[in-house]
Simulated scan of single mutants.
Amino acid sequence: MFFASIFITLSEPSADILLAFVKNVPVLFVVMAYFIVWILLWLPIAVVSAMIINWRPGKTLQPEQKIPLLIPLYLLAPLVLWGMNWLGLGSFSDYGLVSNFSIINSLVLGVSLGVLGLTVVFACQLYFGWCKIQQSNFQRLPPILLPTFLIALLVGGIEELIFRGFLFTELQQDYPVWIAAVISSLIFALLHLVWEQHETLPQLPGLWLMGMVLVLARFADRGNLGIAWGLHAGWVWAIATLDTAELITYTNQVSDWCTGKNNKPLAGLAGIVCVLGTGVILWLLPQYF
């Protein structure tokens, strides 16, 4: 008991010094520390997962191989944030993740807006003959709708918590809002290069614009992440469902820079127009709600 009391006595000022140090470090250091710790914790799990799915660096990563690698990565993200919160760097509510029913309403609104926007875009492309529906593949939809939606919710929620929540909020401490938005959106876009460089490069401008619109969604939701989370999840759900069911094929009547390079909407004019249109709606949203 004597030695324990000495240890506690010595630890209390040490803990105060540590907390004071952590709260005064530059924001960029905090951001880098978060991503480094996150990746270091994930690497051992990734190695084991890669061995199980028989994947090696340098080999093409198949869509079905991504899930065993990505799910542990995404599940670790809030745990690392919780650790940083414990050090006094903020809280989940500071990052826009509130625990009340309003976030459910915002989430539903965001999902609806995201799915509706893509529906309009693809409806226009069908009207102009830029793509066509494979009606024989409708039977593939029922088994994939719920699993795809749940994955979209996970991906959208974690990415919004990281980029529009933690990263954007921390950057605002040292930078004006618009610079914090630009930097967080740029990091969001560039990190997508980790998985598929060939298909992601043409999407970089669209991904950056998507990040900026999702920042706007947080402002439209009075600082909360509900609408941004819903939008992100809605877009991922709709695109993943179309791709998995192979419901849409392109007719090549126009350049793929219109419909999307490599069949990726964000790599074409159609996807950019969808994101910009969503941004306009978000800009007007606070006037009506």
Rank of each mutant, 00 (worst) to 15 (best):
L161I: 08
W86E: 14
Q203V: 10
T148W: 00
A233W: 00
N263C: 09
F2V: 15
F128E: 10
G211S: 08
N24H: 11
F128A: 11
I45H: 05
D174G: 10
F7C: 12
A50Y: 02
A15N: 11
G211N: 07
L266E: 05
L285S: 06
R164F: 01
P142Q: 04
M1N: 12
Q134W: 00
G268I: 02
A238T: 11
G271N: 07
I227D: 09
L225M: 13
I281E: 09
F219N: 11
G206K: 06
P13T: 13
A15H: 00
D94V: 04
W82S: 14
L81H: 07
Y95G: 11
D94I: 02
V182D: 04
E159R: 03
L146T: 08
M212W: 05
Y250A: 10
L113M: 15
F35L: 12
S99N: 13
Y95C: 10
D16P: 00
N137G: 04
F35C: 12
I133A: 06
S255E: 15
I39K: 07
S185P: 08
E196M: 09
I8V: 14
E159M: 04
L247D: 10
I239M: 11
Q173F: 01
G156Q: 07
L209Q: 10
G271Y: 01
I6T: 09
L282C: 02
S49T: 13
N100Y: 00
L61F: 00
Q197V: 15
A33D: 14
G206Y: 01
G110I: 04
T9M: 09
N224G: 12
W178S: 14
A220P: 10
Q65N: 13
C274E: 13
G277M: 03
